[in-house]
Nucleic acid binder design. Sequence first.
DNA 1: AAACTATTCAATAAATTTGTTGAATAGTTT
DNA 2: AAACTATTCAACAAATTTATTGAATAGTTT
Lengths: 221, 221
Amino acid sequence: MDKRDFKNEVYGELSKISKAMSNPHRIEIIDLLAQRPYAVEEIASCTSISTANASQHLQVLKSAGLVTVNRRGYFIYYSLASEKVFDVWRGLRELGIEQSSKAREAVDRFRMNYHSLQPAGIDEIYEKVSKGKITLIDVRPEDEFIYGHIQNALSIPIDKLVSRLEELSKEMEIIVYCRGPFCIYADQAVEILTKEGFNANRMIEGYPDWKSRNFPVSFSA
Amino acid sequence: MDKRDFKNEVYGELSKISKAMSNPHRIEIIDLLAQRPYAVEEIASCTSISTANASQHLQVLKSAGLVTVNRRGYFIYYSLASEKVFDVWRGLRELGIEQSSKAREAVDRFRMNYHSLQPAGIDEIYEKVSKGKITLIDVRPEDEFIYGHIQNALSIPIDKLVSRLEELSKEMEIIVYCRGPFCIYADQAVEILTKEGFNANRMIEGYPDWKSRNFPVSFSA
DNA sequence: AAACTATTCAATAAATTTGTTGAATAGTTT
DNA sequence: AAACTATTCAACAAATTTATTGAATAGTTT
């Protein structure tokens, strides 16, 4: 095996992984699986594709070693195979926000819809949380919260927010977080809270970013 | 623009970037450009493809915003557009080594050829360097060394090594580094040095990793 | 301005990727 | 063991990616 064969083999192998991450639906699936394991039909419905199509994309991810499989009852749950999968996805996401003006504009335009334009970065929030200065609200679906959440965060899924406003104080600064920078639950929440007179902002990043930074998390066994 | 359109737009944009990184030749080009800007013909020859083909791949990388262009005289030099491009590539590389047994085996098999099987990690070496305990040799081509190298490293391009052995001491521990984990210059060097009775090992990672960690570097203006 | 040169372009065929359809399957429940 | 169900498979057509060829081009030298 000469030098060229070696390089062909190595770069060829690695390109299988990046090929697996080179489809919009599959990226979206990875972004979703960073929250918790999901079954095929749930994945299909969250990403607005057919079940058969979702299954096929999941096969691709599985062959590339990016996801693992786990059956419980009738359902087959897919999970990310490694923390490193999220790391690569986050790198890609950050590179995209830096380099692609279209991606940046799409995000800004959407934030604008929800009048949620001064989001705070994860480090800034980590500082404040350590000093106990803010109320953290997790507006993701409850099952994602149960699977893992930021320590001391309060779970108020976005569709329950309007009915649970009396639990919140208008004195404290409120930070809302959700799945990540492309998830709009937090933006919707900030819009609702601001209209009701609360002092609320969203965290740009999501729970998986917090966890990947090794900031303190909790989960229910 | 509803939620689904937004997601399609964002994930679609980001997939353009990963698509650009999803071809073995293009990955190899990125790996090469992490050393220094390179002209099209050089890139073609380093990666064993035709000039026209290299040019086409470079167009793809350029459209995705991953590389930038710079003319000097007759030549057009391509560079990585951002540190983040290397970050994503490194993430992919590490994920590949972790997940793909084929990639891992290819690397091991090749190291074995050169009897260079106890390479040292970058952190370990950083520690030793700070204590001045080792001799660092950069065996990449001289122009890459000039463009940037580890502080206090000695430049001995691999093809000059045999003729410059008298510059080295058999008492000091020698660490050799090159472009990165898929570059074999350092392995070749370790084989030569070991045969001659030197105490030599390679660093697993390459110069771009060192630089990206913000460890001390030098370059000639 | 003419000569020169590295790079890009255009056209092509082969290979791969993609989403859809509806049927088949593997595995769990009862 | 029979019934049931989420998931996978197989077959297809459309779209995209890829490498090759040789000509065209943009820009620098002299």
